[in-house]
Nucleic acid binder design. Structure first.
Lengths: 350, 350
DNA sequence: CGCTACATTTGAAACGATCCAACGCCGACG
DNA sequence: CGTCGGCGTTGGATCGTTTCAAATGTAGCG
C-alpha cells in the first residue's frame, strides 16, 4: 500500500473525482444529493468519499455560492450567566438550522465591540446578533457592520438611533411590565414604602424598569421618596455597599424592587450586615431569575426571563429575516414571568 | 451621480482596482501593507477603499492562502458559569491574536458533540479547543476532527485513548492536588471524620479529586468510612437531596470535601434543612470558586481555578501548537489555589 | 436507418483574494 | 548607443466548490 506523503494535503473534490474516474462536477452533485446522478455512480463516489476521508470545505462553497453558513453573536458580557444561557440557546437553534456561531465578547467595552464586530464581519456572517455594550450608538454600530448584513439587537437599544432604527430587528425584554409586576406584588403584600434599588440611570433597561415601578406606584396612589431611588453598578458587590443609602433618611422603605438579581443578592447581603433579616423584616425582588436566586437565603422573588429560550428566539428571528430580507423591521418584546419566592413577605411592622 | 443598483453587491478588490485605475494585485498589496507600492498609489487606493466602503473577505483570502483565521471552541456545558468564563478567556486571547472563535455547545451529549464537531470542522478552523462531553472516547473524537487539525483537550481526558494520546495537547486542572489541599486544610482545622461528597465515580475529574482526598487522609493516618463517599449528580439540587446519606450511619462526619461548588452549595442547603449550621456545626469545602461562592452563607472555602485565565492559557497553548505543528504533544496541569472562607471552621464537638 | 427524447455526465467559467513571474520604464554605466 | 538594474505594477493562474450550457450515450419510434 502507498505510504501517505509527509505533508498530508487536504483531500478535495478533485481527489475524489480522480479516485473513481468521474468529473468534479459529478462528485459535487453527489455531495449535494442531486437526483440527477445515476444510482451506481453515486455509490461509487460515496465509497470513495469515505475511503479518502473527505471533509467538505464549506468556505469554498460559500464563496462560490455567495452564501453564508455562519451567524455572529456578539455579547456585552459572556461571563454573565444570563448571557451564557442566552448564548447556549442561540447556538442550539443556529446549530439545528445548519449554521455555525461566530462568537465575540465585548465585555462592555465599546471600542472592543467595534474591533470584534469588524473582525467578525470580515468572515462574512449571514447575520449578526448583538447585545450591545452599554452606551453604544447606532452610527458606530452601523459603521462597523455595514447596512448589508442583517442585524438583530438583543436586550438593549442603541443610542442616537434617529430614523435608522428601521435597519435592524429587535428582541427586547418587557422590562417595564416586569418591574410593574414586581411592584404590584409588593403593594399587594401591603407595602407602601417601596424603593427602587440599583442599576445605572443611563442604561435603557434600568430606565424601563424604573418606569414600570413608577407606573405601579402611581396606579396605586403610593408615594416615592427621592432617597428611595439608589443607583449602583449592576453588581452584587456595589449593591451591598450602597445598601445604607436606603436608610439614610426617614422614612425608610420596607421593601425594594431591585434592578436585577445580582443587585438583589447584594442587597440581601447588605441588609444582613445592617442586622436586618431580608424575607422577614424587609422585602426584596430581583429581575432575571438567575440559577442562584432559587437557592439564596431567602430564595428570591424575581422575574424569569428564560434566557435560553430568548436565545433560541433571537436565532429564529434572525433566520426569518435572512429568509425574507425585505420584510419590515420588527421589534419583539418578550414577556417576563413573576416568580414569587420567600424574599417578599408582607411588611413586619404592621 | 449614479444610483446604486437595487441589489447592492458586495464590493470587491476588483471594484476598488477599477475605481482608481490600478490592478487587483496592487490593491491587494496595499491591503496587506506591502512596502513595494509607491506612496502616492497607496494613498489613492486607500482613499478608494474608504470611498467604496470596502470590507475584506477573509474567507476568500484563507482559501487561496490555505490558512485559517478561526479556532473552534466546543464546550460540554456553556451555560455553566465556569465554562462561560473559560469561553470569555479563550475568545479574548484568540481575538487579540487575530483569530475568531467558532462556538459549539454539546450540552454533555456525545451525539450532539459529534454533530457539532463535524459541522465546525467543515468551516476549516485552524485548531480546536474541546472540553469533551462526559464519556467521550478518543476514537469518536478523532473520527470527527480528523488527525489534521490540532486539538487541545481541556478539563477532561478522553476514554479509550490508547496510544493515540500523542495526537493532542491537554490542559487539565490539578484536581488531585486541589482536593488534597482542601482535605489537609480540614485536617489542620482538627477534623478527623471527613466525607467526600458528590460527583460521579466514572468521571475522571471526580476520580482525581477523590484520589487527592484519600492521599491526604492516608498521609495523616485518618480513616475513611464507606458511607462518607456519597455520589451525586454535580448539581445543587441533587446534592441537597442526598445530604441525608452522610448521616445515615454512625459515626457521622464533621466535615465534607465536595466535588465542586455547586455540590457544596447544595450541601449547605441540605445541612440547613437538617437543622445543622454549616460554618459552625459542620465544615464544607468546594471546588471551582464560582462567583457565587464568595457570597453564600457561609462564604465557601474552595479551590480557585481561575477559569478566565485558563481560557487564555488554552488559547495560547493552541496558538503555540499552530506555530509549531511538529513539537511533541504536551500536557499542562494548571495549579489551583485554596481559598479559605468561613465554611470550614474547626469541629464544634471538641 | 435517421431522428428525437431522455438520462447522465462533464468542461469551463465563475466566487474574491493571493502570488509569482514577467513587464515597462528610467537613469546609469561602459 | 546598447544594456543592465531597480522600482512599481500587472496578467493570469490558483485555492475548492458550484453551476450551466453543452456533450455523450442510449433507447424508442416511425
Amino acid at each position: 500500500m502507498s505510504a501517505s506523503p509527509p505533508t498530508t494535503r487536504k483531500v478535495t473534490l478533485s481527489d475524489i473525482a480522480a479516485g473513481c474516474g468521474v468529473s468534479r462536477a459529478t462528485v459535487s452533485l453527489v455531495l449535494r444529493g442531486s437526483p440527477l446522478v445515476n444510482a451506481r455512480t453515486r455509490e461509487r463516489v460515496e465509497a470513495e468519499l469515505r475511503r479518502q476521508n473527505y471533509v467538505y470545505n464549506r468556505s469554498a462553497a460559500n464563496l462560490r455560492r455567495r452564501t453564508s453558513s455562519s451567524i455572529a453573536l456578539v455579547l456585552n458580557d459572556l461571563a454573565n450567566p444570563f448571557f451564557a444561557e442566552f448564548a447556549a440557546g442561540v447556538d442550539e437553534a443556529l446549530g439545528t438550522a445548519g449554521y455555525v456561531t461566530l462568537l465575540g465578547n465585548s465585555g462592555e467595552s465599546r471600542t472592543r465591540q467595534q474591533a470584534v464586530l469588524g473582525s467578525l464581519v470580515e468572515h462574512g456572517p449571514g447575520g449578526i446578533i448583538l447585545s450591545p455594550a452599554e452606551g453604544s450608538t447606532a452610527p458606530e454600530v452601523l459603521a462597523a457592520v455595514g447596512a448589508q448584513v442583517p442585524l438583530l439587537l438583543f436586550n438593549r437599544e442603541l443610542e442616537e438611533a434617529g430614523a435608522q432604527d428601521a435597519h435592524w430587528d429587535r428582541l427586547l425584554l418587557d422590562n417595564r411590565t416586569g418591574a410593574r409586576l414586581a411592584t404590584e406584588h409588593l403593594l399587594a403584600q401591603g407595602h407602601r414604602r417601596i424603593a427602587f434599588f440599583g442599576g445605572h440611570g443611563d442604561s435603557s433597561s434600568a430606565q424601563q424598569r424604573y418606569a414600570g415601578y413608577r407606573d405601579a406606584l402611581r396606579a396605586a396612589g403610593a408615594k416615592e421618596a427621592a432617597h428611595w431611588r439608589v443607583e449602583t453598578a449592576p453588581t452584587r458587590l456595589d449593591a451591598a455597599r450602597q445598601t445604607e443609602r436606603l436608610f439614610a433618611r426617614a422614612p425608610a422603605p420596607t421593601a425594594a424592587v431591585c434592578y436585577n438579581d445580582a443587585v438583589a443578592l447584594g442587597l440581601l447581603l447588605g441588609l444582613h450586615q445592617r442586622g436586618l433579616r431580608p424575607g422577614r423584616d424587609f422585602a426584596v425582588t430581583g429581575f432575571d431569575d438567575i440559577a442562584e436566586s432559587a437557592f439564596s437565603t431567602p430564595p428570591l422573588t424575581t422575574l424569569a426571563t428564560a434566557p435560553r429560550e430568548r436565545g433560541r428566539q433571537a436565532a429564529e428571528l434572525l433566520l426569518a429575516r435572512l429568509h425574507d430580507p425585505q420584510a419590515p423591521a420588527q421589534t419583539v418584546v418578550a414577556p417576563v414571568r413573576l416568580v414569587v419566592r420567600e424574599s417578599s413577605p408582607p411588611p413586619s411592622d404592621r
